[in-house]
Amino acid sequence: MEVTGQRGQGCTSWLAHLIARAQKDGETTAWLQIAPGELFPPDLAAAGIDVRALAVGLLPDLKAQLRAADILLRSGGFGIVVLDLACAQPSVAAGSETRAARRPGDKSLGRLQGLCQKHGATLVLLTQPELTVANLRTKSGVRRLESLGLFEIEAISREQAVTNRSPVESTQWSSMISLRLSLKRRPPQPQGECPLRAKACKDKRRGPGYRFENSWLAPEGVF
């Protein structure tokens, strides 16, 4: 499953909601991010997550994230694993990469998919289209995308991505993704409510194209 949206469009909030619901259902959950990470636990607790039961991985790079996801899913002890790629950094220093280091994701993601099916687990990829577009501008960025072997990149300029502020269809993940949601948040209303719209760009089980929208409450201070 992939959740994608521009930074600030509510992806983290949506996933926090998902994790709280999974925890209520008795699932074990983990969030893998690159150290030092960007999660703000007081808000997660307010959103309904038992933060003591949320395993948070603080990892050095993307390759380690994928390896960690493999370890957690392989154990069969985790129901939901979130791979936070929204703040991911290039995995290897320029000039030091080998072919194996450049392409860790090809095998990893196929393996992760198999592990998910075996243990009835869900791997959620949190992505950010703008990041991929921005990464096009740097050699290391292109390398990272290639190394994952997951992105199909359209020719779209960074300026377009920033000014349009729309869910960019530039990150088409491979066929392994079964559900791809694109999120967009609307400005806060006077009472502090922020409508959040999710669109299913891909859904192998139900078919794509459906949308759902809910009112979310902005953090304290906005109302």
């Binding site: 909030s13 709280a20 619901r21 925890q23 307010a46 309904g48 003591r52 039961a53 703040c87 953090p219």
Partner: peptide, 17 residues
């Protein structure tokens, strides 16, 4: 094991630091 009573209602937007 998580001791969660489920997501907040209405759902809350969270911050990233």
């Amino acid at each position: 094991a998580a001791q969660s009573s489920g997501p907040a209602s209405p759902p809350l937007l969270v911050r990233r630091v």
